[in-house]
């Protein structure tokens, strides 16, 4: 469930990135790389788990599914927080800088 949640997040972010390209002011690429990287790693985790428990991998207990989904959503939220922090620090539109300075001499 965590893998699926992250894969869907990666797909949505990639579609949004492609839709806005070549304009990269929102730095959506950061989110794409992060979610795809995590998806690939969790895919390997899933393969190892499948090798251990075989078909049972596809029939998880509802409580486990819910917990994994909760973890997946938390991972997506953490990714968004990291992206937001990077966006505000890089400030490609100069919005944060504009908020820090007033126009004029006084």
């Amino acid at each position: 469930m965590t893998l699926l949640t992250t894969v869907f997040a990666a797909i949505i972010c990639t579609v949004l990135w492609y839709r806005n390209a070549p304009d990269s002011q929102m730095k959506l690429g950061i989110l794409c790389w992060m979610y795809w990287g995590a998806s690939l790693m969790w895919f390997v985790d899933a393969v190892f788990e499948y090798a251990q428990i075989h078909e049972a991998y596809f029939t998880p207990a509802p409580a486990d599914m819910l917990n994994d989904f909760y973890l997946g959503l938390s991972v997506v939220a953490l990714g968004l927080v990291i992206w937001l922090a990077a966006l505000l620090v890089k400030d490609p539109k100069g919005v944060v800088k504009a908020a820090l300075f007033k126009k004029g001499t006084k």
């Binding site: 790389w33 992060m34 795809w36 990287g37 790693m41 953490l78 990291i82």
Partner: peptide
């Protein structure tokens, strides 16, 4: 980016 992003979330 793939490695750092993935490692951070993992």
């Amino acid at each position: 980016s793939l490695l750092w992003g993935g490692s951070a979330l993992l």
